[in-house]
Design a protein around this nucleic acid. Structure first.
Lengths: 382, 382
DNA sequence: CGATGATTCTTCCGCAGCAAAAGTAAACCG
DNA sequence: CGGTTTACTTTTGCTGCGGAAGAATCATCG
């Protein structure tokens, strides 16, 4: 039971479909996977015997009383395994415990007082022990780090931790005895949203995160497209408006200069001489204060332009805006929408835009999903 | 033999691989398709018996004299079938005959003196007879039309022909007795490049055409992504530079205003009062004439910006620039390249940019590829 | 010039995994 | 209580694949 019985390709597709799309009857599964009903009986049997699936207890509610033999929806036993996800920031480690369905059932944060790889690994192992005490069936650990990660195991380069080629998966693995996956934090969030979130079941899907920096993830055919400049500040070269503001980070008028929280705060500080939090700036813009309103308006236009460009060129079925900097949408969502419309053909399909404010625990949850994938897919492959 | 024996999925994949990637030995095919050698003997036998494939005659050249039993590369019998492709413009119909490998072996153009659907179909049938006299084994007809095409059969809307809901495939089919595929001209060119051209074997591929208008085609996982605003002047809403020139067509500073041949000619005419052809303008820009140089420089910057945005957001492995308006690259290719670099991260993979000047026969050839696909795939599905 | 090895292709066997069809179960309906 | 409807199971047969062994065909080397 440490890892699952090796699943056949057919069994795996059934497991993923039920895991991701909730309770489904065998007939429904047969239709979705284009298999015969007989095959479904065959494929589900070992999955039920191994304890991964159960016949959902009567669906609880009265259900739609249809004619005929009632269906037996199959569901994953979400609590049969627990997973741990960590998000490492410069000064805090955020941890969550999730079920198989990636629901967070516990949280734990710890200050990060050192950047020494070994001591960080010690801390993660200690947090794992603490969390694992309450949730015994731990099946894996996922770790999200800002920076370049290789092979889902080694932190190749992380500026804020000042790490180079740190084999973090190995360090944590030998301290905990659990399978460990390390991934770039944006990539982890993208995977999580692709499997369990806004991108569920979609063929083309984009995640755009706004926070201290900008993150971009493209999912095609259910798989994330990797690219070399990932998480290396690529968006500082996305020039949105050549006459835009100049900030310490990013080229003039780049997405970074216009949209990230530090750049917006910098612009306000440069203009008014006073520091203000992001939320304060948003509130002032909503209240009509000219300086804040101008900066936020410009940011909203930039966001609308970016979203339109993404929609025009990558043609995703949905675009998810995530991160701590999407509060912008509440204050200036109409500006964003108007800008998108101005940069798209009137006959074009409306952009499937979804906004999701995420905190650091959401990033940690994203990392946990990586561990879930490894267990279900049986490999570390992205 | 009218259509091929229905191919099994395995046979079809072998046929396509050999058709698209030239002569290949069975062992090489086994590796590419991830099949065993035994399976390849099984799959190739009926294909050879049916006359689709042959064991290439010793590869002609001396080959690399390696050890062991020499390989027997398989090749399609390109001349076993012929295909006809048409491109319909406002006043001319361009026709080509191609082999199975989409090599054009004959051409025929005719002026189009009427837009009446029946008479156009008559003309196409007559041209088909004329072309077919020299190439007997006709297996299908592909027709490319600017405008909206539904179900690869019906021209839903074509402004320059003033057509609405014309069942062109049916009209031509009943006059020729051949299978007919109708498709939007850009889509046809994209399919052709995906199968036989620059996009061969690529997973993510973009075609950007510049001519009287702008065309965009996105290929993901070997399949073209359809979108509703296709060929309806969508690029007039791609705003590249808000302060760009204003032209009769397209929003201010849009890709259409900056890049299409009519818009460039309009800008020169508006500035100098004299009309000039596109080629003249390019020559004058190359010679350093200020007005032309300014317009062409602006166009090159716009193109670079577009290419960078496409590369940043859709992340294709290659971008093909095609159409009659890519002469721009010869005169101002360095400006385009510099602009691309300025809008991309230094660590990003260099954009695989390929330029291909295409005339109207290339568009017709693209349409012929659709007929090839139908024969090989056995269906009209895109 | 024959033995050896390398490489490609063919033949044959066994079986995984599927669809199709027929059978069983569990509800509702009158 | 038998008919109807729908969901699931069992059985059967077959397709199409991998694997292993063998045949073909070349280079190389003693």
């Amino acid at each position: 039971m440490t890892s699952w019985l090796p699943l056949s390709p057919g069994e795996r597709s059934v497991a993923i479909e039920v895991l991701v799309h909730g309770p489904l009857s065998r007939t429904e599964l047969a239709r979705r996977l284009r298999l015969s009903q007989g095959s479904l009986t065959r494929l589900t049997k070992p999955l039920i015997e191994s304890g991964l699936l159960v016949e959902a207890a009567d669906a609880g509610g009265p259900a739609e009383a249809r004619q005929g033999r009632p269906s037996r929806p199959l569901a994953v036993v979400a609590e049969s395994r627990s997973f741990i996800g960590f998000k490492i920031t410069e000064d805090v480690v955020y941890g969550v415990v999730t079920t198989l369905r990636s629901d967070a059932v516990a949280r734990l944060d710890r200050p990060l007082t050192t950047h020494d790889p070994g001591e960080v690994a010690d801390l993660l192992a200690e947090m794992t022990r603490e969390l694992g005490a309450r949730f015994p069936a731990l099946a894996g650990i996922g770790i999200g780090v800002g920076g370049l990660v290789r092979d889902r195991a080694v932190v190749g380069e992380s500026p804020f931790l000042r790490w180079r080629d740190v084999p973090l998966a190995e360090l944590v693995g030998e301290r905990t005895g659990l399978p460990v996956v390390v991934e770039n934090d944006v990539a982890a969030l993208v995977e999580a949203e692709t499997w369990f979130g806004a991108g569920r079941g979609l063929d083309r899907f984009v995640v755009l995160t706004i926070g201290a920096g900008i993150g971009y993830g493209l999912v095609l055919g259910g798989r994330r497209v990797p690219y070399p400049e990932e998480n290396r500040g690529f968006a500082r070269h996305w020039i949105v408006d050549r006459n835009g503001p100049l900030t310490p980070d990013g080229e003039r008028g780049s997405a970074v200069s216009l949209l990230t929280i530090p750049s917006i705060r910098y612009q306000i500080r440069a203009a008014t001489g006073h520091d203000a939090t992001y939320e304060e700036i948003l509130a002032r813009a909503a209240a009509g204060e000219p300086m804040a309103a101008r900066v936020i308006d410009e940011a909203a236009r930039a966001l609308g332009t970016l979203v339109a460009q993404i929609a025009n060129f990558a043609m995703p079925q949905k675009i998810l805006l995530a991160g701590e900097g999407v509060g912008l949408m509440d204050v200036a969502g109409d500006v964003v929408d108007a800008t998108i419309r101005a940069n798209r053909h009137p006959l074009a399909a409306p952009v499937g835009l979804e906004t999701k404010v995420s905190d650091f625990h959401d990033w940690a949850r994203g990392a946990a999903v990586l561990a879930i994938q490894v267990l279900v897919l049986g490999s570390v492959q992205g």
